[in-house]
């Protein structure tokens, strides 16, 4: 079975999503029947969908989306660049690898809430989600790219050495095709992570006009339909950006390889 087929088989099935929505609706109706304000505990999916429909035409909704996306996605991009650069350095130099190892381990193991609170002491709340997103994205990108470089075909590198192939040609002929799958996997994983961590940072730091602030307000005023509507917006953004980024990266890697093949 190819990985694409496996991916398709593992992807979301409409019937399964439907069953979960029906279950959600059922539990919400049960809570409403048992408690006087049961719908506050768990808003039904229909209310959440209606609330999202109300929010969609509002300019403020899009401004909030843009505010959070710019910071969280900005952190993701910065970390991707840093992760690739430092992984390349670490692969070439053992001391760099040893120097970075404790920092990467710390970011991987320390709870994100600790970093958020610490960062709140240092930074303006507006920069918080950018910083936290970048922090969470760095380890998977760095570690995956480093592993990709380590797993490169040594025999091909030896061949390039024997034929004195210039660095640029080695990069596009051997490096990119062999390391890119590792980077792609890291990107997919990191995009989910950065939204989770970035939104959590915004809920704690409460920057003005952010999705996190909207989530916090939903909790304060017990507006559970709002909570679900904003959560749905985050999930949609995360999935859409993941698809877009992977598509763009695939195109870029393919185009770069094609250009290299033509020009050299």
């Amino acid at each position: 079975m190819t990985s694409t087929t496996a991916r398709k088989k593992d992807s979301l099935r409409p019937w399964a999503v439907g069953v979960w929505l029906v279950l959600w609706q059922g539990v919400s109706m049960l809570l409403t029947a048992v408690y006087p304000h049961g719908s506050l505990l768990l808003a039904p999916p229909v209310s959440a969908a209606l609330r999202l429909c109300e929010l969609l035409p509002a300019l403020d909704f899009w401004r909030t989306i843009l505010h959070s996306t710019a910071r969280i996605f900005g952190g993701f991009l910065l970390s991707c660049i840093l992760g690739v650069l430092l992984a390349s350095l670490a692969a070439a130099n053992r001391r760099v690898r040893e120097f970075l190892a404790p920092a990467v381990l710390a970011v991987k193991t320390v709870p994100v809430a600790s970093f958020i609170i610490l960062a709140l002491v240092w930074l303006d709340s507006d920069a918080l989600s950018f910083f936290i997103s970048a922090l969470m994205v760095f380890p998977p990108v760095y570690l995956n790219v480093l592993e990709g470089i380590r797993q490169m075909d040594r025999q091909l590198l030896e061949m390039a050495d024997v034929f004195h192939v210039p660095l640029r040609r080695r990069l596009w002929g051997i490096g990119v095709p062999q390391v890119y799958p590792y980077f792609r996997t890291a990107m997919s994983l990191a995009l989910g992570l950065c939204w989770k961590a970035g939104a959590a940072a915004e809920v704690i730091g409460l920057p003005n006009g952010s999705i996190g602030e909207r989530l916090y307000n939903a909790k304060i005023y017990l507006r559970t339909p709002d909570l679900f509507a904003w959560t749905a917006a985050i999930v949609t953004l995360s999935v859409a950006l993941e698809k877009l980024c992977l598509l763009a990266a695939d195109r870029l890697a393919g185009k770069a390889a094609d250009e290299w093949n033509c020009k050299r």
């Binding site: 061949m159 390039a160 192939v165 002929g173 051997i174 095709p177 050299r264």
Partner: peptide
């Protein structure tokens, strides 16, 4: 200083075609 080598395992870039494999070592 300069060797031409044919390795036992061929060591070709499997994802590239013949012309690109040659260009990889020969340049333009």
């Amino acid at each position: 200083p300069r060797w031409g080598a044919a390795f036992q395992e061929t060591r070709l870039l499997e994802h590239l075609n013949a012309a690109n494999n040659l260009q990889f070592v020969l340049g333009p």
